[in-house]
Amino acid sequence: MRPERLFACALLALGIALAGCRQDMHDQPRLKPLRESEFFRDGSGARPIPAHTVARGNLRADTVFYTGKWADGQLADGLPPQVPFGRALLERGRDRYGVFCAPCHDSAGTARGMVVRRGFKQPTSFHDPRLREARLGHFVDVMTNGFGAMSSYASQIPPEDRWAIAAYVRALQLAEHAPVAELSAEDRERLAASGANP
């Protein structure tokens, strides 16, 4: 092949290659979660649920599971049947408590969390007599509807996790007031080793 023809071929190949450097396929009008949309007037692709409608599977007729209250408004005194009690529930509760509650209520439930130390209104300690005597459903109700300065966590914590957290709060209350004599020998040793004053 003559050199100038070779050069022309190379130039053509380069042109074709460069023409491929476009982002059209990367940026298609596909609706990704929370992406903006030109179709809706408010510009939001994530649509709020229209008033007076119930999405399929969201009827939530089982009030106690979703709100912590029976249909007659009485707070539930224990876990609803679809939440089986066990170590897994408490561990899930501890994990979610650390995410959603500890910023204010702190990891021991004494209401001295980081956000409180930064100036948020101090909540009641979980070891306060009123909350020790409160029914389990009370905690689920507060997470669902908010209480005082605390807003509702219904959109952040799914119902099954709210029950797990409530169960873990109960465990925290038990732990805070457990007599040393009731601990296993192993736990007593660890307590002594930690230097804590029971």
Binding site: R96, G98, V99, F100, P103, M114, V115
Partner: peptide, 8 residues
Amino acid sequence: QIGISCGY
């Protein structure tokens, strides 16, 4: 600094 977890 505040220690808020990702999932919050």
